[in-house]
């Protein structure tokens, strides 16, 4: 009996390659990334906001022209990270900079947690781009402080900590203390 002729399957690979590239191009690995924030719960009008000492607040104002006013002085965004770090860490215990409160944190012992709060206020006419840049710089300041602390205590960067207990210890020692005031409408929306 004669063998039936073999079908040439060499081009099959080409066809499937074509399909593969098609799918690679049309679909997207949805890597949605962003800056995380937790909004404060709805404001209760009956409860008065707690008074915070002036030295414990780091005010960042953004006007409708995207100019910054940091602690009452015009500032540049490139300097913001450094200023925020200095404010939150207060390495020299400067009386102008925020107070610290000793708190017992697991794995860290008594750690002086800064009472400082960064307050951002923006205009309704501020551009979203600028707002994100400011948020990014402030987040970077906190992340750098966390990295330094984690490097000091656990010899690892904050991102590289695998034990969730250590992560929450560092988070407790350096909390994300950014508060946002209600936006004002001075410059108008245009």
């Amino acid at each position: 009996m004669r063998k039936p002729p073999e079908i040439n399957t060499g081009s099959m690979a080409d066809i499937s390659f074509l399909l593969l590239t098609f799918f690679l191009l049309t679909s997207s690995i949805n890597t949605d990334k962003g800056i995380f924030r937790k909004l404060p719960p709805p404001a209760d009008p009956t409860v008065k906001p707690a008074d915070i000492k002036d030295r414990n607040i780091f005010t960042v104002l953004i006007n409708k022209n995207d100019r910054l006013l940091v602690e009452g002085k015009p500032a540049d965004i490139t300097m913001l990270r450094q200023q925020a770090k200095e404010f939150l860490s207060n390495p020299a215990d400067d009386p102008e900079l925020p107070e610290k409160k000793l708190e017992a944190i697991a794995f860290l012992g008594d750690y002086p947690v800064s009472k400082g709060v960064i307050s951002i206020q923006n205009d309704r006419g501020t551009s979203y781009n600028m707002y994100i840049k400011v948020q990014n710089e402030l987040t970077a300041a906190i992340n750098e402080l966390r990295d330094e602390l984690a490097m000091n205590k656990f010899n690892r960067k904050f991102d590289e900590l695998t034990d969730p207990d250590l992560v929450s210890a560092v988070q407790k020692a350096i909390p994300i203390s950014i508060s946002e005031a209600e936006p004002v409408d001075i410059g108008g929306q245009q």
């Binding site: 990334k33 962003g34 800056i35 995380f36 937790k38 909004l39 709805p42 209600e182």
Partner: peptide, 18 residues
């Protein structure tokens, strides 16, 4: 953001590129 606060959707992420 005010609306999200009102309806208690407090976890947000500002989507950004690297």
């Amino acid at each position: 953001k005010q609306e999200l606060r009102k309806f208690n959707a407090l976890l947000i992420s500002y989507s950004t590129r690297k």
